[in-house]
Amino acid sequence: MKSVIFSTAIKYLIPLLLLFSLFLLVSGHDTPGGGFCGGLLAAAALSLYAMASDDTASVKKMVKFDPINYIGVGLLLAAGSGFIPLLMGEAFMTGTWTKVGVEGSWVIPIGTPVVFDIGVYLVVFGVTLLVLLSLVEENRGN
C-alpha cells in the first residue's frame, strides 16, 4: 500500500501514538485507559507503520524482540504479580500497595495491580503485533 501522505504522516504520528499508549497504561488506574487499551493502541500504531512502509523489518527493529517474547514476559509479569501477596501471607492476587517517593514533595502509590496491568499491556501488545505482522508478511509473500 503506497501512499505518500499516509507514510509521511505515520512517521510523525508514531512517537505520539506510542507515548499516548504509555500514558493510557500509566494513568489507567484513575482515568480512562489501562493496559488493555494501551497495548492495543501501541500494536495498532506499529501495524499502521508496517502497512505504510509495506515492510515488517523496520517495525521488528523498532520493537527489538520477537513479539512472542512480549507475550511470555507479559504473562510472567501478570501471573508473577499475583505471587507477591503470598509472601505477605495474603491470598493469591490480593492487591498489595506501597508508596514510593520523597516525603512531602511527591508520592506515588505502587501496587501489584500496576504490575499486573503492565503484564496485560505486554500480552495484548504482543499478541496483536504477532498476528498483524504475520499477516503483513504473508501479504508480501503473495
Binding site: 488506574h29 480512562p32 489501562g34 493496559g35 501471573a79 499475583g82 492487591g95 495491580p113 499486573f116
Partner: peptide, 21 residues
C-alpha cells in the same frame, strides 16, 4: 481498597484480576 478512581480498570486488574489473568 484498590487505590484507583477508574472503576473499570480497577475491576479489570484487581477485583476481577483472576478473570483477566
Amino acid at each position: 481498597r484498590a487505590h484507583g478512581h477508574n472503576i473499570v480498570n480497577v475491576i479489570l486488574v484487581d477485583f476481577r484480576g483472576f478473570d483477566t489473568l
